[in-house]
Design a protein around this nucleic acid. Structure first.
Lengths: 107, 107
DNA sequence: AATTAATATTGCAATATTACGATAAAGATA
DNA sequence: TATCTTTATCGTAATATTGCAATATTAATT
């Protein structure tokens, strides 16, 4: 009746789906890209850059955080978000695996 | 009020998000993997293999089809789904680009 | 033409997501 | 301490997704 039956799927499939879900909103893609493009860590011009309200940005950041893609540290006044490189490469690998493991000699 | 504001994002971000959405459900990940692993094209044991009702599988297949990842052809009695290799590689490339374009020298 | 098997569509209920105004919390500054 | 700035949380409304029973469609077989 409307809830995903995650229990019937393998951990691998669930994990990839879970990661994909984070990338499944353009705001989160844009946020990740923006954060990564900053050499310095001073963030949250995000509200202006992305064009969504501050609570909405905060929620999206939280989704990204929940999957471990952000490291947050305080530096002076502002909270600073950075890409968690280790986790990033983990997900990169998962997607790479998924796309590579496909058998194409069909039809 | 609940609807994604896709118009405020770039085509690139929207397209990646759109593709990610298709992978954002374990059933669809499992379906794609299963189809690709069949050397021959006779599909739709899917209902048994995946463990969801036939209409649900049909809907998931439709999502996958909508983004162009499936080629469907008739062969004898059964409809046959195969991975659309060209589109597959397009998406593979998009994800690869996204994951590579991230600047990691921060924090 | 009638039957069978496979797939698609419809309709509906449960749940999840998206968005934002209002408000709270935390820390810096005056 | 009062104020300002930044970020988080709450509450709520709109929309989207997930899942399946019932039903329809399609094509092959009898």
């Amino acid at each position: 009746m409307g809830a995903s039956k995650t229990h019937i799927f393998s951990p691998t499939h669930n994990e990839l789906a879970h990661a994909a879900k984070v990338l499944a909103h353009p705001a989160r893609v844009a946020i990740l890209e923006y954060i990564s493009k900053q050499d310095a860590c001073i963030c949250n011009d995000l509200v202006d850059v992305i064009g969504l309200a501050q609570p909405t940005i905060s929620q999206h950041l939280n989704e990204i955080k929940k999957i471990g893609l952000l490291k947050g540290t305080f530096e002076g006044k502002n909270l600073c978000y950075c890409i968690n490189q280790e986790r990033w490469e983990e997900l990169q690998h998962s997607f790479h695996q998924f796309f590579s493991n496909i058998n194409r000699n069909c039809c």
